[in-house]
Amino acid sequence: MRMLLAFIVLSFAMQSVWSRPVSYPGGITADMNNNGDEHSLLLHYSPTAKYSLGIRSEYRRAGEYLLTSFQLNNLVKRWNKKDSQMNFYIKSGIGYADRNSSRLKDDSSVAIFSGIAGDWESRQYFMAYENRYLEGGSLDDFFMQKVRVGMAPYIADYGALHTWLMVEVEHKPESEDTITLTPLVRFLKDVHKVEAGISSNRDVLFNWTIRF
């Protein structure tokens, strides 16, 4: 717990050294995620092209609580190559979790979370890894990690509809279903990115990102 707090404080303190853009300078992004674990909306702003600050609202389905948090995303390192790009991020947040449930005991707590993420992308192939640890006092406490690989069946020009076929494997050590597999399709067009899939638990995945 102390180490996690130190990690978050460190990532805030070192943002000027570590950080790289999450979006372009002045860019605003709305990121909505729906899957078997959560329904969430993150609105973030990149003051410079080196980090983003955001407000996240997240409903955790298993714990039946709403987490409203302040989130910082740092792009620690980006490797730009002629035909590919690779990124390493740290994502951290602190907020307030509140449960108002008919099934579980009402409760509330301060919650913090942190995780790392990395991706490699060319115009045809995609790989990504992400993990997250959340400490929510008496409400929740979990670790998850996931890997995603993808391939574009065709290479589209700038401005055209881009399509990706992907598979996501999620690992949740404390869950009943430790491993979840989700085949999905990603579409990119203009400022929109939409992802849709169905997991091996038959949960629907639907993500929508808009960059303003």
Partner: peptide, 16 residues
């Protein structure tokens, strides 16, 4: 340009 692999990258440069 190095790292220019997606439409979002291109949009970033258009904005800048």
């Amino acid at each position: 340009i190095y790292g220019l692999v997606c439409d979002f990258c291109a949009q970033a440069l258009e904005k800048v």
